[in-house]
């Protein structure tokens, strides 16, 4: 089974994240980045499937030079090869353009049996790219899998909702997005780190994919960030001194916030 995993290089959520003042896009220069944690689950899910049978895991990312680190991490975990789509024109792309570039890259890679993605990125957190990508590739979109099994040409997932748990089947090829409940992503071993050095990573530009610069980037985006401001620091909570009526005051407070 050949699997393509889409991964994203995101600013470290532990670091101080900000935007570029010039065009209101995410600042990726002045903050350490890493493979989006939510995509680690996708890589792990793909590796498990291939290790249980046979085939190859290809990771694909769309992003600037540093995004190569996201591919490297996935290769260190055990993926077989990487594809890095980079082009200055991609800067500022929205989910629609990103899904276009990913779709063209996946078509160029070949016809995978499965495309696996995380449930969302940890920076944009829109969670729409998987479905858009499935639409563009004409694949069934089976999203938010917290369990995944593949039997022959059939993939089965469990999808946990607020009020029900669904079991969903799809015929391969299919696109599956996975949640952080599906597995425990492995840490790369030293052996994996050494092996990753020798694994092939291809770099493609928009031209390699037949995508016009005008179809992507900030100018082509359907939405635009007009302004941004840092969230004000959390203000100190209200301190109530108990003068025998503490319980009553607490109840009043909760009632005022409609908790009771």
């Amino acid at each position: 089974m050949n699997i393509v995993v889409c991964v994203k290089y995101v600013p470290d959520a532990q670091a101080e994240r900000t935007f570029n003042a010039s065009d209101n896009t995410t600042d990726r220069e002045n903050v350490d980045g890493l493979l989006s944690e939510l995509d680690e689950y996708a890589v792990e899910a793909a590796l498990k499937l291939v290790e249980a049978g046979e085939g190859e895991v290809t990771v694909v990312t769309v992003g600037p030079d540093q995004a190569a680190d996201a591919i490297k991490k996935a290769l260190q975990m055990g993926a077989d090869k990487g594809v890095h789509v980079k082009d200055d024109a991609i800067h500022g792309s929205d989910a629609i353009a990103t899904s276009l570039v990913l779709a063209e890259a996946i078509k160029k890679i070949g016809s995978p049996d499965l495309v696996v993605t995380g449930m969302a990125s940890t920076d944009g957190t829109m969670g729409v790219v998987p479905t858009m990508l499935a639409e563009r590739l004409g694949l069934p979109a089976v999203t938010y899998a917290s369990e995944l099994t593949v039997d022959g040409a059939k993939a089965t997932i469990r999808r946990d909702g607020d009020v029900s748990t669904q079991t969903i089947e799809a015929t391969l090829p299919a696109l599956i997005s996975v949640t952080d409940q599906i597995n425990e992503p492995r840490y790369p071993s030293f052996k994996g780190i050494m092996a990753a050095k020798k694994k092939p990573v291809e770099e493609w530009s928009l031209a390699d994919l037949g995508v016009e610069a005008g179809q992507v980037g900030l100018d082509a985006a359907w939405t635009k960030v007009e302004a941004f401001a840092a969230r004000p620091p959390r203000s100190q909570g209200e301190i109530v001194t108990d003068e025998g009526d503490g319980g009553k005051k607490l109840a009043e407070f909760l009632a005022s916030r409609k908790f009771i």
Partner: peptide, 27 residues
């Protein structure tokens, strides 16, 4: 063990990852 920490200076035949020129003791 899964991370390979116990095998850094051990040859592959015993499950380790030691190899020439890798600076295994440094790892």
């Amino acid at each position: 063990g899964e991370l390979g920490l116990f095998g850094l200076v051990v040859p592959e035949e015993y499950g380790g990852s030691a190899g020439e020129g890798q600076g295994d003791f440094t790892s």
